[in-house]
Write a protein that binds this DNA or RNA. Structure first.
Lengths: 194, 194
DNA sequence: ATGTGCATGTAAATTGTTACATGATTCA
DNA sequence: TGAATCATGTAACAATTTACATGCACAT
């Protein structure tokens, strides 16, 4: 019987996985430990990409194996910790990925919109309520994003323009949906007022 | 040794899964077979929800077990086929779900935005190209959605208002993002023209 | 002493996709 | 007769999340 390697590390493929590129990008932006990467994701790209802690550590390993990042033990007191930096090769690989014309699939999974789609099964006032809920959700999201905007503008002033761009895209997207909700609220309440 | 049930049908839980509700909703709208449900999804909600064929048939089974839909064999010639209809209980369950105030998480996974976020690692003209690519992607999406609009308007005239609502939400969302892209294209090309 | 934050890691479960397998019907 | 479409189903695979497990540091 052969000794099987049961550890579930990702297979060594030619292509890096998407999470690995995300980790690489975050290391480039200054996140040093797995812990810091997770935090950076939550503070920035969480609106269009999430990554769980269980994906980060294997990705770091994978990246280091290829020499795209280099890590060294950097304990804080007696608490263990491994700090990473991006390498020259890593910089190149990241840029290549950014320039690569791959699909970049836009995947939206939104049960809110699904419910809205089926809302003709409801009474008119119930449907109206649903539209209002969906609108409120986007309004909350816009407020959250607007609260981050100053930080994005500051970063833009210091040469990191693109986080602000993605922030504005999020705001614009939800703002657009809010307007449509308002239009349909009028439409639904005029025909049969509450 | 106990006889294990190795078939991978979904565990019988209190809660129905999201795909099951999607299937239920589509059966209500007149999709009869698993095949028709898959088609209906591709023709309508695919922009904010997808479902693979491998999820549909177990969902149908699950729904029938609970009496939310009822199915009968309805072969076309000698080709086997099972046709479903929504039951009274199914109508109720669907409406309850639509009214239920659960999270309805909006989940976006977009490597395009991720790349944009990291685009400060690129030269200015390369970043500009990326912005243009992302803009083009949204423009294509808007065109696709606009092509469906007449069908949505027709459905709205016949009492199915909400598919048009979700269609307009998609258009508005991408239109908003397109405007932001244009603004940044100006910004990027003014400072250092190609 | 105790709760929160820093820090890393793994096992199990869940969820979803892709590919395969089968076979009838319709139309060119 | 051969391709496209209708129709159902499963096995294998891939991706991701959740939960668990561990332990130090620091402030209250």
């Amino acid at each position: 019987m052969l000794a099987a390697n049961n550890a579930r590390r990702p297979a060594y493929r030619e292509e890096l996985s998407a999470p690995a590129y995300v980790v690489l990008g975050m290391v480039r932006l200054g996140a040093r430990s797995g812990y810091e990467i997770k935090q950076a994701v939550e503070l920035s790209i969480r609106f269009f990409w999430t990554i769980s802690q269980a994906q980060i550590y294997p990705s770091l390993e994978q990246l280091e194996l290829r020499g795209l990042i280099c890590g060294h033990d950097a304990p804080r007191g007696r608490r263990r910790r491994r700090a990473y930096q991006i390498t020259e090769a890593g910089q190149r690989e990241l840029r290549e990925w950014l320039k690569r014309a791959d699909p970049m699939r836009f995947e939206l999974r939104d049960l809110g919109l699904v419910k809205l789609f089926f809302a003709d099964a409801l009474e008119r006032d119930e449907a109206l309520e649903l539209v209002t809920t969906i609108k409120a959700r986007s309004q909350e999201r816009v407020e959250t994003l607007r609260a981050i905007e100053p930080a994005g503008e500051e970063a833009a002033g210091e040469g990191n323009l693109h986080p602000l761009l993605t922030l504005r895209m999020g705001i614009a997207c939800h703002q657009g949906m809010i307007e449509v909700c308002k239009e349909f609220e009028r439409r639904l309440s005029i025909r049969r007022p509450a």
